[in-house]
Design a protein around this nucleic acid. Structure first.
Lengths: 175, 175
DNA sequence: GCCGCATGATTGACACGTCAATCACCAGTG
DNA sequence: CACTGGTGATTGACGTGTCAATCATGCGGC
């Protein structure tokens, strides 16, 4: 997949010019705004369901996994986390009874992570309010055009970050 | 794609409709992409200057302050941090010799934060590479139109989050 | 079978952030 | 002046994230 193409096109001009202050301002606006949205939605999620955004991401990945169980490293890959981060977090979630870790049958080094009943229920109860919150604070703010434009812009940034990837799906997480 | 409807304008429609999966996808793309940009730029900043993004923000605010010194709570307000977060962080930065805290003359409860020579120098050395990195990974990716559109979208989101504010400057920090 | 090394996963040390509690001091009131 | 309430700032406990080190197991070559 690396050759055969006359290539280069694409957005990655080198451009020796300096950044304008408008660009910098917009960069700051992007950081600040997404940060604030994260905080608001994270706080509300925690408030209403006692789940952190990280918890939610883990539970979501497990829920969507075939068989509702995943090897630890697959899970890490799915949500794009470092393994040690996941290990720490699974420890905490296990203590809270949200997930379980069993020894893997086919590879004694491995661990299989699965939802507990409590974890599944917590996730179910968290989902609807969380979606509503995203809608309220994000989706309801923008026009359909703005959505499309924002989607394109994210797509552009992604292909700039990962020039060679074929289908630059937004990032790690789905949903 | 979604048209045919006269559509009520105004950003704060209540709209009983559910979020579409496209909207959710774009939300995830926004989160993932900004997260990745943060990580990349943060890692590079740390690599090249031994400053975390948080350090940088603090040093920037101090550099831009008149008199190069700020009361702790003013600093917190400028960069939109909780005071306790700032206090912890200033403790760490003080240990590393980047900033100094002196008792305030006019109010014995207060502390005045100022840059040390080391802190000022660290900031100076960090700035240019950091700007270059932002340009490379962000600014160089987008067309002028996309910048304007993105700016508008952030503006829209901000006014949706803070309906009454007059001049919805992107957020806390400048840059 | 044993060696070497890669791999799955965990651990420990430490930086960072949040929340609630605390401490010291200011200012207004009687 | 003593009381009291509010404010500036710090602290401690704890959850979270990163990095480097570790441990155990799998696996290919000899």
């Amino acid at each position: 997949m690396r050759d055969g193409k006359p290539v280069p096109i694409t957005t990655s001009a080198i451009s020796r010019r300096r950044m304008t202050s408008e660009e910098l301002t917009i960069w700051r606006a992007l950081l600040d705004t997404t940060d604030e949205l994260r905080r608001i939605l994270g706080a509300q999620l925690l408030q209403e369901s006692s789940l952190s955004p990280a918890d939610y991401q883990v539970l979501l990945a497990l829920r969507e996994a075939v068989g509702k169980r995943l090897r630890s490293s697959e899970l890490a890959a799915n949500i794009d986390w470092e393994r040690s981060r996941l290990s720490h977090h699974l420890g905490r979630m296990e203590r809270r009874g949200l997930i379980r870790r069993d020894d893997c049958v086919t590879d004694s080094r491995g661990a299989e992570v699965s939802l507990t009943a409590d974890g599944a229920q917590a996730f179910r109860h968290a989902t609807a309010p969380h979606m509503r919150a995203i809608k309220k604070h994000f989706a309801d703010a923008l026009t359909p055009e703005q959505f499309n434009l924002l989607g394109d812009i994210m797509q552009t940034l992604q292909s700039h970050l990962h020039p060679d990837v074929m289908t630059p799906r937004a990032g790690g997480g789905r949903a």
